[in-house]
Design a protein around this nucleic acid. Structure first.
Lengths: 195, 195
DNA sequence: GTCATTCTGTACCAATCGGTTCAGTATAAG
DNA sequence: CTTATACTGAACCGATTGGTACAGAATGAC
């Protein structure tokens, strides 16, 4: 006895995430969000609560999605091939289809570090989860004698993460995939993980 | 026949820079700036124009100061010792005296990449100047046969820069100097520039 | 003293911010 | 049809935004 399901909530969140991703949290105004999501103001507050809670939802989605990419790759690939695949998927592919996006979590940390402790903490937690996933993969390889490096699995993961963050800053700049690609390759060769 | 010089302009800019540095551009409101600078609203607009033009002044100051640190080090040290000294001065020392500052230029790029093209371009230009300074130092060392690396001076500078950006993201997070220090050392060992 | 100048402080501006409220419309189940 | 629900659209809220205007106090040169 009602009007059937709601509108397409997932697509709306997706559109909001994309806007937050390119414009940042503060610069994404309510009218901007409503237009991007294609819903009315009242529906927004009925379905998502506040702008802040929607942002948290987007941050979770983005973080989980990124982690999934990494973990799926970890099943298919050797640990040594993992960083390249991850950089390819999360830096190069993104940069190709639209410049100046970078990474929502890194963007959030840099924008809100001293402004919103909770959001900063959430973004940091998601980034830590990625580093931990790298650590696990390297540890596994180390136990199987597949990894030959002067660094421990933890150190290696930490180094990959530092480079990863650097790459995501550069992908948020105007750097084209043409310039990003050799940086990635040189970084991998530095890590002893080049082809 | 007037009230003698103005108030201490340099100190006011300094205070503004510090606020922009920790809070970012948007989150630094006019009242916040006025309190930090210790001047009245009217004096602000008489001396600095708009908030935006003051920010540009701060960005220039910060960028030039960072570049000066690097160029002064380049005069005293060997190119191989340059990255450590630079990381020490701009990442560790800053992080020790107050956490979550990072680097004003990196913060700006991440906050305003798709919001303010001009400010983004200015910050990027300053970052490029730093990379170019590294390139020059490595080129000089290469010509003198002092540099032994499988990578060209340009590639090496590019790698240092990627790691540099990554470190600055981490120093904007909650990472303590205790955690930053080994990351720096491992990065340097990776680059073949360790002690 | 006069006079020019540099400040401060306050009042004010239009615009925008995130968020609330509500009347009205569209849609489906019964 | 009636009725319950899902939505839109616009009006409205107080607070805050960056920026302007101006009266008056403080200060120094003459």
């Amino acid at each position: 006895m009602a009007r059937s399901p709601e509108f397409d909530r997932k697509k709306a969140v997706e559109a909001a995430m994309k806007l937050f991703w390119t414009r940042g949290y503060t610069a994404s105004s309510l009218p901007d969000l409503l237009e991007a999501m294609g819903i009315a103001r009242s529906s927004f507050y009925a379905s998502f609560g506040t702008k802040r809670s929607l942002f948290i939802e987007c941050l979770e989605l983005f973080g989980d999605r990124t982690l999934t990419i990494l973990e799926d790759d970890a099943k298919r690939l050797t640990p040594a091939a993992l960083p390249r695949a991850f950089f390819q998927a999360t830096v190069l592919d993104v940069s190709q289809r639209k410049a100046k996006q970078g990474c929502l979590m890194v963007n959030t940390v840099l924008e809100l570090a001293d402004v919103d402790a909770q959001l900063n903490q959430l973004a940091t937690k998601k980034l830590d989860a990625i580093e931990k996933a790298f650590t696990r993969a390297f540890q596994l390889a180390h136990e199987n004698g597949e990894l030959h490096s002067p660094h421990s699995p933890e150190e290696l993961a930490s180094l990959v993460m530092t480079i990863n963050l650097g790459l995501r800053v550069q992908s948020r700049q105007n750097l084209s995939p043409k310039k990003l690609k050799p940086i990635i390759e040189n970084s991998l060769s530095l890590l002893g993980l080049a082809a």
